[in-house]
Every structure is written in C-alpha cells, then in structure tokens.
C-alpha cells in the first residue's frame, strides 16, 4: 500500500535533459523508482541516464504506460508543461519548480480540478513511498520503509524530521511535500484522508508553518481521525508582517499565528512538538497509547 505512489508507479520526467532533471533522474533510479520515459522537446529519440527521451508527453504515452509525471521545468515554462501532462490524461503530477507566478498556478489548479488530476506542489520536494518509489528531490538515505505517514509544507525541515524518525527506528509509509507556495495542489486534509484509510500507515506527522489557514483546516479533519497525529509548526518566533521564505509563511492581520495553529491542533487531539527532535518520542508515546508500539 502506501499512498498515491508505490512500487508499480510508472514515472515520466518532463525536463529530463536539464541539469536538475538529469541529476534527480539518476537519484530516483538509484532509489528504485520506475522511470519509464523522459520528455525534452527537440531531443526525442535520444536517451538520458539510460531512459528513452521523447519530444512530447503524447509521444511518450504512445510507447509507455505512465501513472505519474514529475516536472523539472523552469518557472516561465512550467504552466505549459503542466497543461501538456494534464491534457494528455496523466493522473498524478509532481511540480518541483519554484518561482512559478501565482496566476499560472491558479490556472494549473483549475485545469487539474476539471480533469481530476492530482497535483503535488509546486515548490515541493515531491513524494516518497519509502522503499518503493521516490518522485522528487529528497536525499535517498533517510527514507526507510515503515508505518509513519508524513505530510509537510517545507523541504529540508521534513528531511530533518524524517532523519530523526529513521534514527529512532520509525520508518515511513509515505512522505508528501505539499509545496511552499500559496497555491498548491494537495492540501493537508487531502493527504490526511488518504493516510487515515491506508492500512500501512499507523500514525501521521504533520509539519506545518505559520501563515495561511492550512493547519487550521487540517485540525478540523484530525478531530475525526482514529490514527494519532503529531504536529510540528515552524515559525513560533517569526514577527508579524515578515515573510519567512515561503510565500505562505507570513502573519497578516493577526491570522495564521503559531499560537492559533497550536491551539487548533491540540484541540483536535494532535500532539504538538515544541522542537523537531521531539517528534519521534511523541509518535512512540501515541502508538503505545493505542497498544501498537
């Protein structure tokens, strides 16, 4: 099981011949991801890291079954590449690209909604079903199979927490990066729903941050969940009105504050870690409570 992607997911890489595309295709192959094809307009018929390259998504689809596509495409061209994949009928789209204009993101989401495409990102590290399939850019060595589901808004902070889980003997079912932009495809609630249903997942770590109301929305769903949820929220010390890197990470008009999020999550029954390294102990305690660990 695991969610969204697994060992049978056939993956397409759009922008496979660029620096990022090549580097991460190599890393994903090393992790065991089934990359069946790449797209790079004008480079059809060649190979990149041993993977056949096509001029268009449709040309790749004529030769392969494709379940998911990952985009390593510069921001200015990302909308077109996303449209191409969605229009071709690909059901899972992982957009790694950062700096995409928000109006382009709005259009991508509108088309994806219409066609029933699952979009992860933009501005995400991607998604890893540990030991089965990695679509994205996280370092391979920290992601080991297990039963903790992880869903996050930020990248390196997630690696930090996943590395802590792994070091404490807690492997992961699936780790999902929603993306750091204001408009992204999957939400916390979308992913929590899937984790709640996934037989391989026994607990969930939610890595949030200040700004927006994604964590508050998540809290309303967590209230109904049977599986334990541990949360960590970054940005406790951030002053209002200053954007901390991510487009969403800003406290405006007193909304999206650390205190508000912690209160919502705690009220919904989630345990909230004060510091990242406290997460594994809280997961273990929650599992012990349920007689699992």
């Amino acid at each position: 099981m695991a969610i969204i992607i697994d060992e049978n997911t056939h993956v397409l890489v759009q922008g496979i011949t660029g620096n990022q595309g090549l580097f991460h295709t190599r890393q994903m192959l090393a992790y065991g991801t089934k990359i069946v094809a790449g797209v790079s307009p004008g480079k059809g018929g060649t190979k990149a890291v041993g993977v056949p390259v096509y001029d268009s998504v449709n040309a790749a689809l004529e030769e392969h079954r494709i379940d998911a596509s990952v985009l390593f495409i510069p921001a200015a061209f990302a909308k077109d590449a996303a449209f191409e994949a969605i229009d071709a009928g690909i059901k899972v789209l992982v957009i790694i690209t950062e700096h995409i204009p928000v109006h382009d993101e709005l259009e991508i989401m509108a088309l994806a909604r219409q066609r029933g495409t699952t979009v992860i990102g933009p501005n995400t590290f991607g998604i890893v079903s540990s030991g089965k399939c990695k679509i994205g850019i996280p370092p391979n060595q920290f992601f080991v199979p297990g039963h903790v589901g992880v869903v996050a808004r930020s990248g390196t902070l997630t690696y930090e927490i996943v590395a802590n889980l792994t070091a404490n003997g807690l492997g992961q079912s699936t780790v999902v990066g929603l993306g750091g932009d204001r408009v992204v495809g999957l939400s916390f609630v979308d992913v929590l729903e899937k984790f709640e249903k996934d037989p391989e997942t026994n607990s969930v770590v939610l890595v949030g941050e200040i700004g927006g109301n994604a964590e508050e929305d998540a809290a309303r769903f967590i209230r109904k969940m049977k599986k334990p949820v541990v949360a960590y929220i970054a940005g406790k010390s951030a002053p209002p009105g200053k954007r901390m890197g991510h487009a969403g990470a800003i406290i405006e008009r007193g909304k999206g504050t650390f205190a508000g999020k912690v209160q919502a999550l705690t009220g919904a029954g989630a345990a909230v870690a004060t510091l990242p390294f406290e997460v594994p102990a809280l997961i273990k305690a929650a599992l012990r409570n349920q007689g699992i660990f």
Binding site: A234, H246, L275
Partner: peptide
C-alpha cells in the same frame, strides 16, 4: 540554514 522551514525552525 538551507530551506525556509528549517531556517524558521532554527530561529525557534
């Protein structure tokens, strides 16, 4: 630090 989330976490 390297990453928006982890930088915020470091400040915290």
């Amino acid at each position: 630090a390297n990453g928006a989330g982890i930088t915020m976490g470091t400040l915290d």
